[in-house]
């Protein structure tokens, strides 16, 4: 069992959670993920680390309440325990010797962008972070990013309620066009990563994306997470989750993420009905 030692609501449907997991915390690196199961009937879901402390033996992740599992998870409180947490899984994000980097974190993707930007800064790169959300309420971790020694922090919202009224691709394009980028990294909704990759491709800025395909075991066993990269099938869990954004077949990934949409809706609806604590 993995005891929850931290919980913070970041927006209406986004939560940050910390669990005691010393063995995993010791090994976690930026860009890696964990698999968790909330209870004995639970499914295994991948979540990327948003933070960890090897010394204090905890790990953190941020999730959005979208289906039954994350809905259940949102009801867990400090002191409760998750039945299973496994990790760290996946290949860590490559952070060494990149030079001038733009890290784009869109929506909940900011949760992953944070440790990635931190690690890139620590590795001596010049890092600009582009943080995007639909509106101010959905913007997360702004203070944490501000605390990092970044070259620049650019905030964008779709409605202009915070920062620039722009999509993240706008500042990314400006930086790419200005020739001040050696590398870009995009983390967020697939559609956002697709457009970020399209933006940087025009200027030949190498771009990494952190993918979030459906997984069952997370250790290479099931192959549910296969993605086409440069015409080759790769496994998101053991070959990724980071891939060359200019080579990923995003259309296929978006289609594959929709496999269980109807099932998930059904399960969540049923759970909501049963669940007395549901607002």
């Amino acid at each position: 069992m993995f005891t929850i030692i931290h919980k913070r609501q970041l927006s209406e449907s986004v939560f940050e959670m910390g669990v005691q997991a010393p063995a995993i915390a010791r090994k976690a690196k930026a860009g890696q993920f964990l698999m968790l199961r909330v209870d004995e009937n639970g499914e295994r879901i991948p979540l990327t680390f948003s933070d960890w402390s090897a010394e204090e033996g905890w790990i953190r992740f941020i999730f959005m309440r979208v289906g039954k599992t994350t809905h259940k998870l949102s009801h867990f409180e400090v002191g409760d325990a998750l039945v299973d947490v496994v990790g760290p899984l996946g290949v860590p994000t490559h952070v060494d010797g990149l030079g001038r980097v733009a890290v784009v974190g869109g929506g909940v993707g900011a949760a992953v962008a944070y440790p990635v930007a931190r690690a890139m800064v620590a590795a001596g790169n010049e890092v600009t972070v582009i943080l995007g959300a639909r509106n101010d309420d959905l913007l997360i971790l702004e203070d944490e990013f501000k605390a990092l020694p970044l070259t620049e922090l650019i905030v964008c919202t779709d409605d202009g309620s915070a920062g620039r009224k722009d999509l993240v691709t706008a500042p990314l394009k400006e930086l790419s066009a200005a020739g001040v980028l050696d590398h870009a990294m995009a983390i967020g909704p697939v559609i956002m990563m697709k457009f970020c990759a399209a933006t940087t491709k025009e200027f030949d800025v190498p771009t990494t994306v952190s993918l979030n395909p459906i997984m069952v075991d997370g250790t290479g066993m099931c192959g549910a997470c296969r993605v086409t990269v440069g015409g080759e099938t790769k496994f998101g869990c053991v070959d990724g989750p980071d891939f060359d954004g200019h080579l990923v077949d995003f259309e296929e990934l978006m289609s594959r993420q929709r496999v269980y949409v109807d099932d998930e809706r059904l399960a969540d609806a049923e759970y909501s009905r049963e669940c007395s604590c549901h607002k």
Binding site: R44, V216, C222, E264, L266
Partner: peptide
């Protein structure tokens, strides 16, 4: 893959969905 199909059903008890959470 047979691995995924069988894992969803055997390990995750997909045949009990939605009582078990894995579809």
């Amino acid at each position: 893959s047979a691995n995924e199909f069988l894992t969803r059903v055997n390990l995750m008890r997909g045949y009990e969905f939605p009582k078990a959470d894995t579809p």
